[in-house]
Design a protein around this nucleic acid. Sequence first.
DNA 1: CGCACACTTGAACCCCCTCAACCCAAGTGG
DNA 2: CCACTTGGGTTGAGGGGGTTCAAGTGTGCG
Lengths: 248, 248
Amino acid sequence: MSLSTKMPALTSHDRRGDPCLRCGARPESVCGVIDDCDLHRLSAASVVTAFDPGTSFISEGEPAEHFFNVTDGHAKLYKLLPDGRRQIVGFARRGDFLGLAVSKSYAFGAEAIDRVRVCRFSRRKLEALLDDFPALERQLLKVASNELVVAQEQMLLLGRKTARERVASFLRAREERPVPCGDGTGRVPLPMTRGDIADYLGLTLETVSRTLSQFKRDRLIALPTLSEACLLDREAVTEIAEAAGTAL
Amino acid sequence: MSLSTKMPALTSHDRRGDPCLRCGARPESVCGVIDDCDLHRLSAASVVTAFDPGTSFISEGEPAEHFFNVTDGHAKLYKLLPDGRRQIVGFARRGDFLGLAVSKSYAFGAEAIDRVRVCRFSRRKLEALLDDFPALERQLLKVASNELVVAQEQMLLLGRKTARERVASFLRAREERPVPCGDGTGRVPLPMTRGDIADYLGLTLETVSRTLSQFKRDRLIALPTLSEACLLDREAVTEIAEAAGTAL
DNA sequence: CGCACACTTGAACCCCCTCAACCCAAGTGG
DNA sequence: CCACTTGGGTTGAGGGGGTTCAAGTGTGCG
């Protein structure tokens, strides 16, 4: 990748050579609020790293020395109980910022699902960046607020929804916006395992599997491969997810 | 509505009479980061309001025009499903900032438990304050991050803990720091009803009641009144909450 | 191919929910 | 002062949704 990028000797203000400038994650990430001409500050503060599938790159409870910006791949974020019970608190994809939980130690662990690429910032350097770019800080506040809303929605799911409703909600939430599945039905990539989905929805993997099979039998979805679902009847799935049919 | 609510005549520059200066919530709230001499900017932007018990002062889905800073009392924050199922996503007390979820509409409803007093800010005025006081913005980011950590802990509770573990976790989390109960055992104020606790923990009120009774029978807690618990055996309750005894 | 791992499917069980009765304290009004 | 109401809380019996345990069935990759 790095070969043949004919770069004129790097000056602090580089014209087109800055890696952040070409980063595919930039438009979907907090970096988007930084002007092109300031991007070199970002790239100077960050280290690009990649993790193989299954690699755990954040450990719950460890000192939080780094922040991560995911530029490619998927990761699961989880919390554990001493006896091994696991709750996945979120999945991170391109553009997601990890480590927002500004405290002494990480509030959750993170493990790569497929091959994950990240920009890593040290705590110190990120704080310096925040001082210099108020827009970045405001963007982080916005991101954190949105995460909070998502987390509250998940609490409703975990506390009050049935298995059917949870799985339907999950499918709707992970549906990709731009890419419909064949004839306009929603395409849902599922890079994680059924067990991961179960630990995200507060169910067992058997219940997730059974419910997906049920949806398939009812022609609500199709499962062309293990790692992809198609919403054949978006309307119906949405209704189940929002528990709309059971009202009254 | 109520008697004798004489609001101190508010001038934009009050010398020592600034209500924010005397506000008991200030040290526990985001306002704490504002210098004394700038406090008048805060009080000028806010309107003090009180709500009777049972009053709903935020409705989920309504346009989010105001932010609230709770200065006294307790409120429950909740989300509803169409058929009436309810999930309480948090309880707000003195110093808590509501409406952080910066979006077009409120992500949850709020209802006063006891008599609640708040400072109300319009969205527009708050944003102006954020522009002028970067420290306030940073503090909000900190608060939001902490809320996120709490939310993730609650996801673990809702998704993976047993009823016993949930109730024990709740008691430990709501234990008041400074005021021990009599002989050093932890005092836990419970201004909310059993039904509220149940909707917070993803249980039924019967299960909450049964579990509390069980704890009482086992001499782990005492229930001197309906709205107060005492942790007689903090150690044991903590162990149950963290599922520490069940490991291996 | 063939192993390994993930997923599916089935049957029995259990924790918590549902439904229902009862208790108790605080009003309220005659 | 007591009968009645009301709202929250407790306790009990029975049932159900999801889990647990246990085989099977792909499916991807060496």
